[in-house]
Nucleic acid binder design. Structure first.
Length: 732
DNA sequence: CAATTCGGGATCTGC
DNA sequence: TCCCGAATTG
C-alpha cells in the first residue's frame, strides 16, 4: 500500500478531537485515559491499536488488549480490524480468556492438565458442600463467594492479612481445604484464571522473560472494574520496556461488590512511572439536559477523581419524571412513550426499559404483547446456567477430565440409576485413594446394592464410550509444543478437518445415551418448559468444533467464559428490557428508567459505599440515553405478591426539580400532613391483632399514609388508616 | 434410594 | 407469590 515515508496523518485520525488524538498518539511512558460516558473511548482504543500497527510498525502479536466482557472484546476486535485488518492477529481478549490461554500454554508450570475445565460459582459451591457436609446450601454459597472475593484480592490461604475482612481460622482452614480439593479435580475457578498466571510469572523467569519480550503494548479497557488480582497480573505481564495504557471511568465502577478496586485507577500513576493522564470529557451521546441530571446525581459521591461531561449535541427535550399509581400505570406510560416515538418515525429497537431487578421485567412482558410491542429480554436467565445445559456440560466435562468431582456428582445419578448418596461418596473416596479417576472408580465400585453397582457400571460404560468417540489430539505427537509456543490465537474453535466428525455428534450422543434427553423431555411435558430445545441449541453450538479432546476443551472453555451465549432467535426490531447492570457500554435513543422507588432502587439497606455504588449504577443508567429520558416512580408496587406502598427514591431528591418535567403528578416528599396523628411510638389497637405500637410512618400518595405496627404478639404488619377501620389509636 | 411435603427466603452480578 | 432445599416417608 502506501509508502512508509513521512506523510500526513491518516484519515481515520482526522475525525478525532484534540484529547482523543493526544491519547492515540501518546507513546512515551505510560498512559491513563479517564474517559467519561459516551466520550468515544472504544474509538480511541481501537484507533490506537490500528495506529500502532499501521503507522508505528508494531507487530500485531506484540499487542495485548484486555476487556471485561466478551461483547466488549468482540466489538473492539471488529472495530480495530475495520481500520487495520492486521489487528486480527493482536491479542484482544477478556482478562479471564487471556488467563485460560496462558494457563493452557504453561499448564505444566501451573501444575495443571492442558485440558482443565473452568468451575463457575455454582460448581465451587458444590465442591464446598462435598468437602464440608455440615454446611447448608446457602452457607456453602456464602463461603464460595468469600473465597472468590479473597482471590479477587490476590489473597492465598496463607496470606497474613486474610483474617481481616474474611473471618477467622475457620475461613483460612476451609479456603485451604477448598484449594486442595480443587487441585485434586485438576480444574480451576474463575479466580485462578487470574491468580495462577501471576504466580507462574513470579516463579518462572524463563516464562516471564518470554512474555515480557512478546507483549510490548498492554491495554486495559473498563479499568475501573479491575480487581487487585488483575492489577497484579497487569504488573506481572508488563516488562520494563512495555507500554501500558489503561482506560476507565471511576464514576462507572459498579462491580465493587465483586472486588473491583477504584484504587487501581488512583494508584496507577505511582505504580507505572512516567504516566500521562488524558481526560475525555466531551460526550457525543446525550443531550446536555440528560448529562446535567447525571452530573448532579454523581456529585453526591465522595472520593471521585472528578470529571465534568460536556455535551457536543445541543437541543433536546427536558427529561421526564412520571409519577404513577402502580405498575399498570407504569407499563401504560411506557407504551405511550413507545407509541409517541414510533409516530415520529422511530423504531422499537430505539427504546430500552431499564430496571434494577429482573423481577420487574414481568409486568412489561405481560403488557407489551397485547399492545403489539415486540420486546427482547436481555440476560435474565443465562443459557449456560440452565439445569439441562449444565447437566449436558457436566457429562462432557467428565469425559474431558475424569477427575472432575463436581461434574461426576452432578450426573452420575441423573437420570436416576439407583445410585444414592452413600454409593456416590464411596466412589469419590475410592478415587481419592487412587489417582483420582472417578470414572474408573465407578466402574470398579463395590457398592452395597446390586442396583447401585449396575447403575455405576452403566454410567462408567457410557463415559468410556464418550472418551472413545473423542479422537486422539492431533498435537499429541509433538509433546504439546504447538501449545507451548506463543501462537497468537485469537480465541475460537480449532479448525475442523474436512470429513472429520464434529463435536455436535458427540454431544448429541452423550445427551441421548445418558438418558438426559428423555429425562428433560418428560420435564418439558409436565411443566411445558423448553429444556429439550435448549439441549438442541447446545448441540448446535458444538458444531463448530472438532470431535477431539482439544476441540472439547475449547468448546467447554468458550461456553464457560461466554455466559451470554443466547438461546433462541433474536428478533430484529424490538424494545429492549434490561437490568441497569447489563446496560454498561450500550446506548439507546429513548431510555426509560423504571421503578425509581425507595427500597427498590436503592434498597433501604444500601448505605455508605454500597449506596455510592448504587448511585454510580444510576449514573450509568442515565448516561445510556441519547435523545429522550424518562424516569418512573410508582406509589404502589406488587412486591412478593403483596401490594406495597413506596416513597420516591432518594436519588430523585438529588435531582433539582427544574431539570425534570413532570408527568402525572408532582412529588410531595413532605409526609407530615398526611401522617396526621399517626406518629412513631403511638399505642394502637387492632380488632384482629390486639395491642401494639407504631414502628414506622411512611407517605403513601393517595392512600395518605402507611403505618407499620409492631404487635405484642410479635407480628409486624402494615396498614393504611385511610382504608381500615380496624386500627385505632389508644388513649385518644 | 426416590418421591413428596413443608417451610424459609427472596438483588444486582462483567468473567 | 413462588421457588428451592431439607426433611420425612414409603
Amino acid at each position: 500500500m502506501a509508502a512508509r515515508a513521512p506523510r500526513p496523518l491518516p484519515e481515520y485520525l482526522a475525525g478525532l478531537n484534540p484529547e482523543q488524538l493526544e491519547a492515540v498518539l501518546h507513546e512515551d511512558g505510560n498512559l491513563l485515559i479517564l474517559a467519561g460516558a459516551g466520550s468515544g473511548k472504544t474509538r480511541v482504543i481501537t484507533t490506537k491499536i490500528a495506529y500502532l500497527i499501521a503507522e508505528r510498525g508494531l507487530a500485531p502479536e506484540s499487542i495485548l488488549a484486555v476487556t471485561f466482557t466478551n461483547k466488549a472484546a468482540a466489538e473492539m476486535r471488529e472495530r480495530a480490524c475495520s481500520i487495520e485488518p492486521a489487528c486480527a492477529r493482536a491479542n484482544l481478549r477478556t482478562f479471564h480468556s487471556f488467563g485460560a490461554w496462558f494457563l493452557r500454554r504453561n499448564a505444566a508450570a501451573a501444575g495443571l492438565d492442558r485440558d482443565f475445565t473452568i468451575y463457575d460459582d455454582d460448581d465451587s459451591t458444590t465442591l464446598l458442600r462435598a468437602a464440608f457436609p455440615e454446611l447448608s446450601r446457602p452457607e456453602a454459597g456464602k463461603l464460595a463467594s468469600a473465597i472468590a472475593r479473597a482471590k479477587d484480592y490476590g489473597l492465598t490461604p496463607d496470606a497474613p492479612d486474610l483474617e481481616r475482612g474474611f473471618g477467622g481460622k475457620d475461613f483460612r482452614r476451609r479456603y485451604a481445604e477448598y484449594e486442595g480439593r480443587l487441585r485434586q479435580t485438576g480444574n480451576v475457578d474463575f479466580g485462578d484464571l487470574i491468580s495462577l498466571p501471576v504466580r507462574v510469572l513470579e516463579r518462572e523467569p524463563a516464562i516471564r522473560e518470554r512474555v515480557h519480550a512478546r507483549f510490548r503494548v498492554i491495554m486495559v479497557d473498563e479499568y475501573q472494574d479491575s480487581n487487585v488480582a488483575q492489577f497484579e497480573l497487569l504488573k506481572a505481564l508488563a516488562g520494563p520496556e512495555a507500554y501500558v495504557c489503561v482506560v476507565g471511568d471511576d464514576d462507572q465502577s459498579i462491580y465493587r461488590f465483586r472486588g473491583a478496586e477504584v484504587k487501581n485507577i488512583l494508584s496507577f500513576p505511582e505504580v507505572f512511572p512516567r504516566t500521562a493522564v488524558v481526560k475525555l470529557e466531551r460526550n457525543y451521546r446525550s443531550y446536555q439536559s440528560i448529562l446535567d441530571i447525571a452530573s448532579r446525581v454523581v456529585e453526591n459521591n465522595e472520593g471521585r477523581l472528578g470529571k465534568t461531561l460536556r455535551a457536543t449535541r445541543t437541543g433536546g427535550e427536558k427529561p421526564t419524571l412520571a409519577v404513577l399509581r402502580d405498575h399498570d400505570e407504569e407499563t401504560a406510560y411506557c407504551i405511550r412513550v413507545i407509541d409517541a416515538h414510533l409516530r415520529t418515525g422511530g423504531s422499537f429497537s430505539d427504546v430500552a426499559i431499564l430496571y434494577r431487578t429482573n423481577a420487574q421485567s414481568l409486568a412489561f412482558e405481560r403488557a407489551f404483547p397485547p399492545a403489539g410491542i415486540p420486546y427482547r429480554l436481555v440476560g435474565a436467565l443465562r443459557f449456560y446456567e440452565r439445569e439441562e445445559v449444565k447437566d449436558a456440560l457436566a457429562l462432557l466435562a467428565l469425559a474431558s477430565n475424569p477427575r472432575d468431582e463436581v461434574a461426576f456428582r452432578r450426573v452420575a445419578n441423573k437420570p436416576a440409576r439407583g445410585v444414592g448418596d452413600a454409593s456416590l461418596e464411596a466412589v469419590v473416596e475410592a478415587a481419592f485413594l487412587g489417582d483420582g479417576d472417578l470414572v474408573a472408580a465407578a466402574a470398579e465400585a463395590r457398592a452395597k446394592s446390586a442396583k447401585a453397582r449396575a447403575g455405576l457400571a452403566a454410567f462408567a460404560a457410557l463415559m468410556q464410550k464418550l472418551a472413545e468417540r473423542l479422537a486422539a489430539p492431533a498435537l499429541a505427537d509433538d509433546g504439546g509444543r504447538a501449545l507451548d509456543d506463543d501462537a497468537p490465537g485469537p480465541s475460537g474453535p480449532p479448525p475442523v478437518a474436512p470429513g472429520a466428525e464434529r463435536l455436535s455428534a458427540v454431544v448429541e450422543y452423550a445427551v441421548r445415551e445418558s438418558g438426559l434427553l428423555q429425562y428433560h423431555k418428560d420435564q418439558d411435558d409436565i411443566a411445558g418448559s423448553q429444556k429439550t430445545a435448549n439441549l438442541d441449541e447446545l448441540v448446535n453450538a458444538a458444531s463448530d468444533y472438532p470431535a477431539t479432546r482439544e476441540g472439547l476443551a475449547a468448546f467447554l472453555e468458550a461456553v464457560e467464559l461466554d455466559r451470554a451465549m443466547s438461546s433462541g432467535e433474536v428478533s430484529q426490531d424490538a424494545v429492549t428490557l434490561i437490568t441497569m447492570h447489563n446496560t454498561k457500554g450500550l446506548e439507546f435513543p429513548v431510555v426509560v428508567i423504571a421503578g425509581m422507588e425507595q427500597g427498590l432502587f436503592p434498597r433501604d439497606d444500601d448505605e455508605g459505599d454500597d449506596l455510592e455504588e448504587q448511585r454510580r449504577l444510576f449514573y450509568v443508567a442515565l448516561t445510556r440515553a441519547k435523545d429522550e429520558l424518562h424516569l418512573t416512580y410508582c406509589r404502589r408496587r406488587l412486591f412478593r405478591g403483596r401490594i406495597m406502598e413506596y416513597q420516591p427514591s432518594r436519588f430523585l431528591a438529588e435531582v433539582p426539580k427544574e431539570l425534570l418535567k413532570s408527568f402525572g403528578g408532582k412529588l410531595d416528599l413532605s409526609i407530615a400532613e398526611a401522617a396526621g396523628a399517626w406518629k412513631t411510638g403511638t399505642r394502637v389497637y387492632h380488632d384482629d391483632h390486639g395491642a401494639g405500637y407504631v414502628a414506622r410512618v411512611a407517605p403513601a400518595g393517595e392512600a395518605g399514609v402507611c403505618v407499620t405496627v409492631r404487635f405484642e404478639t410479635g407480628r409486624t404488619l402494615q396498614f393504611f388508616p385511610k382504608f381500615t377501620k380496624k386500627l385505632e389509636r389508644m388513649g385518644d
